[in-house]
Amino acid sequence: MEMADSPLADVLGRIEKTCKIARRDPGEVTLVAVSKTHDAEAIAPLLTLGQRHFGENRVQEAQGKWPALKEEHPAVQLHLVGQLQSNKAEDAVRLFDAVHSLDRPSLVKALAKAFDKTGRQLPCFIQVDIGDEAQKGGCPIGEVPALLAQAREADIPVAGLMCVPPLDIEPAPFFALLDKLARDNGLEGRSMGMSGDFETAIRLGATHVRVGTALFGAR
């Protein structure tokens, strides 16, 4: 696949165009290619074209394909974008390079312990339950400052905040709220925006967009 004809070129072009409109530097936005449910064969073309940031939802699934791919492509940065169970924290820390789903005090403890044991420290995004949806996971908005303080006390490098807005509702107000929360708490990173809404997210301050379908096609 040539870069010019690829979905990757299309997504990168849209990121660049949106940054231009928003008067932002495209270098401020990291494209995380969400490769969950896709095998090594589907991931290989993106690696060949130079994509280096990838996202996975589940530790176990990532363990099945990424060790070999990372050996072949040592510059790859692997982002955990799905919920993390505390008992999988050590496995996650050994394989991933960033965690986007820190959402509760018990996970702060589990990650701190895993960092000590492995000697690795991963940048973490606090996942915020931006739409007040109990089923989604994420820290309630009012509890973000307390969780952030706990994470900092445990020497966890907090890179920013992450959210998944409610489905089928205009996402802009939720992205704007996450941007404000990040600013209020002195955080640089905003992990927000997926295939259907990443341009809106970029206009409202996203630093990391998590794109799957637009790159890999529908699952």
Rank of each mutant, 00 (worst) to 15 (best):
residue 33 A to R: 04
residue 33 A to F: 01
residue 33 A to W: 00
residue 35 S to Y: 05
residue 36 K to C: 07
residue 37 T to H: 11
residue 38 H to W: 11
residue 38 H to Y: 11
residue 39 D to S: 08
residue 40 A to S: 15
residue 42 A to W: 04
residue 42 A to L: 08
residue 43 I to D: 06
residue 44 A to R: 15
residue 44 A to D: 13
residue 44 A to N: 10
residue 46 L to I: 03
residue 48 T to K: 14
residue 49 L to M: 14
residue 51 Q to M: 03
residue 52 R to P: 02
residue 52 R to L: 10
residue 53 H to M: 02
residue 55 G to H: 01
residue 57 N to I: 00
residue 58 R to E: 06
residue 59 V to H: 07
residue 59 V to Q: 07
residue 59 V to N: 14
residue 60 Q to V: 07
residue 62 A to S: 04
residue 63 Q to N: 11
residue 64 G to P: 00
residue 68 A to R: 06
residue 69 L to N: 05
residue 71 E to I: 00
residue 71 E to A: 14
residue 72 E to W: 03
residue 74 P to C: 07
residue 75 A to H: 08
residue 75 A to D: 12
residue 76 V to E: 09
residue 76 V to F: 09
residue 79 H to W: 01
residue 79 H to I: 00
residue 80 L to P: 03
residue 81 V to S: 01
residue 81 V to P: 04
residue 83 Q to D: 07
residue 83 Q to P: 05
residue 84 L to I: 08
residue 84 L to G: 08
residue 85 Q to N: 05
residue 87 N to H: 05
residue 88 K to S: 12
residue 88 K to T: 08
residue 90 E to G: 12
residue 90 E to W: 11
residue 90 E to F: 14
residue 90 E to C: 03
residue 91 D to E: 11
residue 94 R to D: 07
residue 95 L to V: 06
residue 98 A to T: 13
residue 100 H to E: 14
residue 102 L to S: 03
residue 102 L to E: 00
residue 103 D to W: 03
residue 103 D to R: 05
residue 105 P to R: 14
residue 105 P to E: 10
residue 106 S to G: 04
residue 106 S to N: 11
residue 106 S to Y: 01
residue 108 V to R: 11
residue 110 A to Q: 07
residue 111 L to C: 10
residue 111 L to S: 08
residue 114 A to C: 02
residue 114 A to T: 04
residue 116 D to F: 03
residue 117 K to T: 13
residue 118 T to G: 10
residue 118 T to W: 08
residue 118 T to M: 07
residue 120 R to I: 06
residue 121 Q to Y: 06
residue 123 P to I: 10
residue 123 P to H: 13
residue 124 C to T: 05
residue 127 Q to A: 05
residue 129 D to V: 12
residue 129 D to P: 06
residue 130 I to P: 12
residue 130 I to Q: 14
residue 134 A to E: 12
residue 135 Q to R: 12
residue 136 K to M: 03
residue 138 G to H: 12
residue 142 G to I: 11
residue 143 E to Q: 14
residue 144 V to C: 04
residue 144 V to W: 09
residue 145 P to Q: 04
residue 146 A to K: 15
residue 149 A to R: 15
residue 151 A to D: 10
residue 152 R to P: 13
residue 154 A to F: 13
residue 154 A to W: 13
residue 154 A to Q: 14
residue 158 V to G: 09
residue 159 A to M: 10
residue 160 G to H: 12
residue 162 M to Q: 07
residue 162 M to G: 06
